[in-house]
């Protein structure tokens, strides 16, 4: 047999480790896309003090605290408020009118990272007069970011960018009304937080959430391979009411998926879909 390259060996090490982590901790990264996973794992490895994944493995399987650092290292938690302003504008213009027809709406942000997207939605819905008529469920696999999200505190230097996004997204108020600046950070107002329930939830292993009017899962499935994407979409399908909305990231589509035919495109190019009333 020919000698394997270092690359081939490290691919095998990654597979073995993911299998072990699943069996020990129940966290399933086996169907994550490899390119990003490899990049993140190598970054984690370079700060961990271990020379190879195999050398790290024995301790990772025994030491939960060490595993937690890996989990935080693997997941990409980058987010921003009103990311893709034109998407939020489309929600405001095309989806809110439908939402207003319900007495109460439930919205699920799956893979909410540190909460920026969920807070953006809360602001938008309040500005549209839905205060008291909605609840947002925001979930993520990474408990550390969930805690951050609960705090609603962001570095002040990011606020300038968030403000620009808010304006481009068609915000009707003044963004500074939604936070208080303290030293080098901004604290979002408590009345935004009242509308949001943050919880840990894994799309890879956990069950569905009932009866949602809208589900947003943006820039989460880009890290998943096909089988996991299908699992997650099936989960969303069973959590969404008929006539409910499914929103993906601007570079993701619902084309050629098992559930595709049950959904229609509502806003082209914005990846906003609606679950059909009549089954096709």
């Amino acid at each position: 047999m020919t000698q394997m390259t270092g690359d081939e060996i490290s691919d095998i090490e990654i597979k073995l480790l993911m299998e072990g982590l699943f069996q020990v901790y129940g966290h399933d990264f086996r169907d994550y896309s490899e390119a990003s996973l490899r990049r993140r794992l190598n970054q984690w490895l370079s700060t961990s003090g271990f020379a190879t994944i195999s050398l790290a493995q024995s301790q990772l399987l025994r030491d939960r605290a060490l595993f937690e650092t890996l989990l935080r290292g693997i997941t990409v938690n980058v987010s921003e408020m009103f990311r893709d302003p034109s998407f939020f504008k489309a929600i405001r213009e095309h989806i809110v009118p439908y939402l207003k027809t319900y007495p109460f709406v439930k919205i699920w942000h799956a893979g909410c990272a540190s909460g920026e997207e969920a807070y953006s939605m809360a602001i938008l819905l309040i500005e549209e007069g839905l205060q008291g008529r909605f609840r947002i469920y925001a979930t993520d696999i990474n408990e550390e970011v969930i805690q951050k999200a609960q705090g609603g505190i962001y570095p002040l230097q990011e606020l300038q960018h968030f403000t620009r996004n808010y304006q481009n997204a068609g915000g009707t108020g003044s963004f500074s009304d939604y936070y208080t600046a303290r030293y080098d950070h901004a604290i979002l107002s408590a009345n935004l937080r009242e509308n949001i329930v943050f919880a840990a939830h894994s799309l890879a292993v956990d069950a569905d959430f009932g009866e949602m009017n809208m589900i947003l899962c943006r820039n989460v499935m880009i890290y998943f391979k096909q089988p996991l994407k299908e699992r997650v979409l099936a989960l969303f399908d069973s959590s969404l009411i008929t006539g409910g909305f499914l929103c993906l990231g601007t570079k993701e589509t619902l084309d050629n998926r098992n559930i595709s035919s049950q959904y229609e495109t509502i806003v082209p190019r914005m990846q906003i879909y609606r679950k059909r009333y009549a089954k096709k």
């Binding site: 691919d11 490899e34 390119a35 990003s36 990049r39 990409v76 820039n219 880009i222």
Partner: peptide, 21 residues
């Protein structure tokens, strides 16, 4: 590569994106 996304390549020669920092 589209704006605001990292472009990566998978072993099966398909395109992947990331919004990592």
């Amino acid at each position: 590569a589209p704006a605001n996304y990292h472009l990566l390549l998978e072993r099966d020669s398909t395109i992947a994106f990331s919004i990592d920092s």
